[in-house]
């Protein structure tokens, strides 16, 4: 029987917590950005587009360092947050969630944007002629039709968050019980002699979690598709 050690349980729990919050927290922003990029023309759009995609091409360590400079206790934003509200982000699991969210953000936005661009604007016009305002139309017509894209975006972002390492270790380091997620625990084990067996077990757990996430995504997306097709 494969029972988890307390270290494994803790790393798994943290990974799920961090990735879950990373996705949930960034989803509304992701949908808003995708909508802006898909539907609106504004000056500096190319710049915004590039900025959103930057984490995809930058080394994660750069993103992590940038977050540290920005959100660290002595950072521009982080300092203010600490001074006024007593909130610390760096070196906490919340920081890990933010790092994961930033890294995974481009994947999420891309998937939702593509889906939004595929929505028949005529359906939105039809909703308007039926007495539905722009905001209500977005929630009752556009959003349900974009659901497959949102699902894809969420799964991609979640999977990317689970595997996040570089930005996380730079920004929030390796703190047991706080920021030591599966990849970080795995990395730590490979750095000590005799950690091979424990590392292998973490590998298996990672594979199982990732696979379960993909499977769940597939089942959900089939359901959504079936709903749209009747």
């Amino acid at each position: 029987m494969f029972t988890l050690t307390s270290l494994e349980q803790e790393a798994l729990y943290l990974s799920l917590l961090v990735s879950g919050w990373a996705v949930v927290g960034s989803l509304p922003v992701g949908i808003a950005c995708a909508w802006l990029l898909a539907r609106r023309e504004f000056p500096g759009k190319a710049l915004v587009d590039g900025l959103i995609h930057l984490p995809l091409v930058l080394p994660p360590v750069v993103v992590g360092y940038f977050l540290l400079v920005l959100l660290g206790r002595r950072g521009v934003v982080g300092g203010a947050l600490y001074d006024w509200f007593g909130i610390t982000i760096a070196f906490t699991w919340k920081g890990a969630a933010i790092a994961s969210a930033v890294i995974a953000f481009p994947l999420m936005v891309r998937a939702i944007r593509l889906s939004l661009e595929g929505v028949d604007r005529g359906l939105e016009q039809a909703a308007r002629t039926l007495g539905c305002g722009p905001v209500a139309t977005f929630f009752s017509v556009t959003l349900p039709l974009v659901m497959p894209g949102i699902l894809t975006g969420v799964i991609l972002a979640f999977a990317r968050s689970l595997s996040e390492f570089g930005a996380t270790i730079t920004f929030v380091s390796n703190i047991p019980g706080e920021t030591r997620t599966l990849p970080i625990a795995l990395y730590a084990l490979t750095q000590v002699p005799g950690g091979d067996e424990a590392a292998l077990r973490l590998c298996i757990i990672s594979v199982v979690v990732a696979f379960a996430a993909l499977l769940a995504a597939e089942i959900l997306s089939r359901r959504v598709q079936a709903r749209l097709k009747g």
Binding site: G122, L123, A126, V141, P144, L145, L228
Partner: peptide
């Protein structure tokens, strides 16, 4: 009321 050429029923 507007009836479009392509119907435009909401598929969901």
């Amino acid at each position: 009321g507007y009836v479009f050429q392509d119907g435009r029923l909401f598929p969901h």
